[in-house]
């Protein structure tokens, strides 16, 4: 699982430009299970279907990551950018970024009178170019950069870029690897454009029309020095979401997830995320409404160049989802 996560997290996949990560995921899927029907839809969602009877369940993990979009190149070859997804200028300053073609850049800032003035429009990417032409050739306007890849471990902890949400993608792959046969159909969806408004999940749910859905994503923690209040910690188990800004969990789906965790002795936490949303936000409002739940992997420093998770939470998230899918009352109790 760790190796899979290492490969996925270091892949390039900004929102709207998910080609590389999709290719990587397609390879992983093909190696795992020959019986999966794999396709890409009009928006770029990668859908792997495990056939079954008329009941359908959708599992979603977004494969896109936050990025920077080049908007302007000046005479000296400095690149101005627009954020793709939620960026904090304080976390960008000094970060190393990489473009699809492998060009590296670092982020500098204008001279500021006041530290409070540090806004995104005071920042620029320096790729080392010495002219506009050189910059344009390597990173034309409209190209995107993501945080530079790295992957390291310390005990059970993993540090990397884009664990949001390659961790969720890894959980889905692990479920495919371990799930015993079930009667119903499962659509594993690696969604696009979650970071810019839960967009891929919306169209995927519309076309697949599931009876039940579960999204897997990351969530914040409150376990760092002077952190804002949040009763989620690394290493205490996957979090079962109660609420975020986009979504209030279906009471029965949430209860089923909790029941599963308790009966299988899987540690879990309950998550109330006061900011942010997940794919579940658009999935549950699709068509006549879809009962939906969320399993979250506790993650520190989300949307920074170095996010940290605990490997045990990742494993337990996969275990929880796998056990949940085998629950005998899955559809009848909704």
């Amino acid at each position: 699982m760790k190796d899979t996560l290492a490969r996925l997290s270091q892949s390039f996949g900004p929102s709207g430009r998910e080609e590389e990560i999709r290719t990587q995921l397609t390879k992983e899927l093909a190696a795992l299970d020959k019986n999966l029907a794999i396709r890409t839809d009009a928006l770029g969602n990668l859908i792997a279907t495990k056939p079954g009877d008329e009941k359908r369940l959708l599992l979603a993990a977004h494969m896109d990551e936050i990025a920077l979009l080049v908007t302007h190149i000046d005479d000296l070859g400095f690149l101005r950018f627009s954020p793709v997804g939620g960026h904090d200028p304080r976390l960008l300053l000094g970060a190393r970024v990489i473009f699809a073609n492998g060009t590296m850049g670092t982020i500098g800032r204008e001279e500021l009178k006041d530290k409070e003035d540090l806004k995104l429009d005071k920042l620029f990417i320096d790729i080392g170019a010495s002219s506009r032409a050189e910059a344009e050739e390597n990173c034309p306007i409209g190209s995107m950069a993501v945080f530079a890849p790295h992957f390291s471990t310390q005990g059970s902890r993993i540090m990397a870029k884009a664990l949001d949400n390659r961790a969720g993608c890894t959980v889905l792959l692990e479920v495919i690897r371990n799930l015993p046969p079930v009667d119903y159909q499962i659509d594993f969806v690696f969604t696009v454009q979650e970071e810019v408004g839960l967009r891929g999940a919306r169209t995927a749910a519309y076309q697949l029309q599931p009876h039940l859905a579960v999204a897997v994503d990351v969530t914040r923690t409150g376990d760092t020095p002077e952190a804002p209040v949040m009763a989620v910690e690394l290493g205490k188990g996957p979090a079962i979401k109660v609420k975020d800004r986009s979504f209030i969990s279906h009471p029965r789906v949430k209860d089923l997830l909790e029941e599963t965790a308790r009966s299988q002795d899987i540690p879990y936490q309950l998550e109330i995320l006061e900011r942010g949303g997940t794919d579940a936000g658009s999935i549950h409002l699709t068509r006549e409404g879809i009962p939906t739940g969320v399993i979250s992997i506790p993650t520190r420093y989300i949307h920074s160049p170095a996010e940290i998770i605990d490997y045990r939470d990742l494993k337990n998230a996969a275990l929880l989802l796998c056990s949940f899918l085998q629950h005998k009352d899955l559809f009848s109790s909704l």
Binding site: H284, L285, T286, R287, E288, G289
Partner: peptide, 10 residues
């Protein structure tokens, strides 16, 4: 306005 969204669709 989430319930209205899905019930009017339905």
């Amino acid at each position: 306005v989430r319930g209205a969204m899905v019930s009017s669709y339905g």
